[in-house]
Amino acid sequence: MKVSLFLTCLADAAYPADVGRSTVEVLERLGCEIDFPKNQTCCGQPAYNSGFHRETRDVAKHMIRTFEHADYIVSPSGSCVAMLKEYPHLFEDDPEWIGRAKKLADKSYELTQFIVNVLEVEDVGAEFEGKVTYHTSCHMTRLLGEREAPMKLLKNVKGLNFTELPNKQQCCGFGGTFSVKMLPISEQMVDEKVQHIEETNADILIGADLGCLMNIGGRIDRQGKSVKVMHIAEILNSQK
């Protein structure tokens, strides 16, 4: 099965290779052939959520062209995939682009969603020793509607000592530009999230969205706390 990887701009620019590399290796281990369209950029969410929809359309058109050849688009981010699925709304009045946008939306999957629902695999054979908790991510659960897949996969990772995060449904306060535009509110939200993470006594916070992890991890680091954040792809790619 040929899978086109949409890395996301955060994994592309702000983080080292780990998340993308883990995504590629897990999918290859499950028998997928990976294609990485080099012209890919960003899903357009920063402009979209800020109200700049004309600008978002330019970005969306570029992404539609870049991934038009793909059979499946898989991305290690629920939020960015939810944005790809917004594209048809952006082209409601554009008969030329709406069909192309719908096709892109229909073949886009978040990584864990793809593994569980398309590949129909719940045990990727991973092994990882550690006391962990998991942040569910709002866009993954509520916009994409994917609540089960990450938990199904984590349940089968050997060695995980898992504690559920209290108030897990609550936003971490990232929200893209919200994190800087509404800094004082975002700060209170991330502080409450960090407090709940500490209540679990976990050493590692797992998440499936780098936006949330950058926010929570950045706050944890600033407070000099020792909890580490890791992307779920890295956990799923861990082997003994």
Binding site: A11, A14, A17, G20, R21, R219
Partner: peptide, 15 residues
């Protein structure tokens, strides 16, 4: 209020 991610090591594209 937050640190930036530690951007050390090889980039994905390079890898």
């Amino acid at each position: 209020i937050r640190n930036l991610p530690k951007s050390t090591g090889q980039s994905f594209r390079k890898w």
